[in-house]
Amino acid sequence: MLAFILRRLGSAAIVLIFVGVLAFILFRYVGDPVNQMVGIDTSIADRDRLRESLGLNDSVIVQALRFLGHAAMFDFGVSYQFKRPVAELLIERMPATLELSLISALLSLVIGIPMGVASALGKDRWYAKLLQAVSLAGISLPTFLIGILFIYLFSVTLRWFPSFGRGDTVKLGTYWTTGLLTSSGLRALILPAMTLALFQMTLIMRLVRSEMLEVLRSDHIRFARARGLPARSINFRHALKNSLVPVITVAGLQLGSVIAFATITETVFQWPGMGLLFLQSVQNVDVPIMAAYLLFVAAMFVAINLVVDILYLAVDPRLKTTSKAH
């Protein structure tokens, strides 16, 4: 077990180094950072001097290694645009993204599970088919359009919720700011969380449906039926409970992609999270932010995968030989 974890940690480190180097090598194709740092009429000599002082004239490999060397000590450099340490910026923006992602994941479970159950129990009935079709709404339009439609409906027309930002936040401890404790913060959260949740909801609903269908066919449910247990008890006490384990697992695994996905939602709602920071940094060719954000996402994916693998291993030792449970 320990050996397995160590091996996985080793490969996780390799993955991170790879992401770092690869990202850095490719970033030079995204654009020229210097153009975004000076006015259009800044002289060529000044531009060259800036380029030199940023180390952009060194070979890409040298730049990448230098970045990795610093990153290993959690020093991600200073943002070209904001002139602030990238680590600080990311930590500042992290609570916004995590709150948005967690709330929307929760929302998608709360809505997705009942819909999945209903469409599984009513399989082949018209309403189940309809539910399945309706659930596709979440993935049938691009997120940015859904977000803008929400804003149009709920902010401009009905004036129920704000169209942008995070509302008032409260500071918890040194690093964490939360919008969950103020009414304006909660109101501001609703539209972006719904936009983000729609996509996940579709996934959860379909997952619950197919897991339920599987379980309902399994022997122990048939046995329960044969024993004459009431349908309600069978469906919810036994079938749903058994279906939920994989659903929760996948939802957990999904959290990584939700956070990565949040970029578009954050942009539309000007949600001050890491995704917005990342997209802005792409537009501004702010290489330190891009690189650090990618490393962060990579670390998160790796961590979640690792945790899941370890959990599976703890549950089922037979899996020791195959490394991947997913």
Partner: peptide, 15 residues
């Protein structure tokens, strides 16, 4: 506010 639609919405709704 980067997105134009959001910016206009923020003005229209008085934010």
């Amino acid at each position: 506010v980067t997105s134009s639609a959001t910016r206009v919405a923020a003005l229209l709704s008085g934010e």
